[in-house]
Design a protein around this nucleic acid. Sequence first.
DNA 1: TTACAATATTTGTATATACAAATAAAAAAG
DNA 2: CTTTTTTATTTGTATATACAAATATTGTAA
Lengths: 151, 151
Amino acid sequence: MKIEDEIKSTVVLDLPKKIILNIMYTQHILSEKFNEILKPYDLSGEQYNVLRILRGQKGNPANMCVIQERMVAKTSNTTRLVDKLLLKELVTRNVCPENRRKIEVLITQKGLDVLADLDPKVNDHEKATTAKLDTTELEQLNHLLEKFRNQ
Amino acid sequence: MKIEDEIKSTVVLDLPKKIILNIMYTQHILSEKFNEILKPYDLSGEQYNVLRILRGQKGNPANMCVIQERMVAKTSNTTRLVDKLLLKELVTRNVCPENRRKIEVLITQKGLDVLADLDPKVNDHEKATTAKLDTTELEQLNHLLEKFRNQ
DNA sequence: TTACAATATTTGTATATACAAATAAAAAAG
DNA sequence: CTTTTTTATTTGTATATACAAATATTGTAA
């Protein structure tokens, strides 16, 4: 469906407005679908994002600010996200001995197990979501989004 | 910048993952920029969205459910958004006399004035944001996003 | 070495999001 | 005409987002 129909617009939209609405709307649909996958695991999209970053550290602890700069939504409140993961025992957190301002966050085995369980479901979902476009179109979309952002 | 660099990914991302992250990240950047424009007006993006929908009604009142189905983020809580706009006297709300389950929401002159003041700023921002792409590329991006969504 | 600046994180507050449950009115069914 | 179902909205709760202010530690300069 075209974006004008999705939002039942009563006025004509110019191309810049249409593009922006299209990106906003598509993202919203995407995260809604993704949240459905995460729901049985009692994880929010941002909590999942933190877990993925920690797994990517391959055993090295990550500071709060390292997590923050790697997040998709960089204005998220990392402290409170880590708090929630801590309660579920998916991460550990300790004060860094060399610099007591810093916090070392590590994913636990339980956290790794949850991610391993989610991996095939997430991959299937990502493949299904992008199935309407062929490889050329996906690369084109990727390129256009990056060009769009880079100013 | 490429999406892998924006999120400083330590692992290789396949094309579907990259596209999805790219959309999520681009949307996030977009709404951050847009919120900056709205901030002096003490409006959130969603509150602005509601005002735009009400102006599009051209004098006809809109019910809560009409507003909801026209919003970009359809899971927003329309009641509470309208509450905030009511406090700022940007809208009025009255029970519909024909069907007392329904609420008639109307934009006030003050609300229209705020939008009129914002219009040129929003248009300039939208033009500037999309300036990196020419018309053909914008139409391509639009088409790819709609094809991506339609499954 | 005391004062000041920079860095890393936490806390507070307001708003927004997601979703379930509650409420109320209208429409349909018996 | 009462009961049930549907529709429209509101309220409650938990989490997330945005951003400013507070706190604590480290680094630097007079």
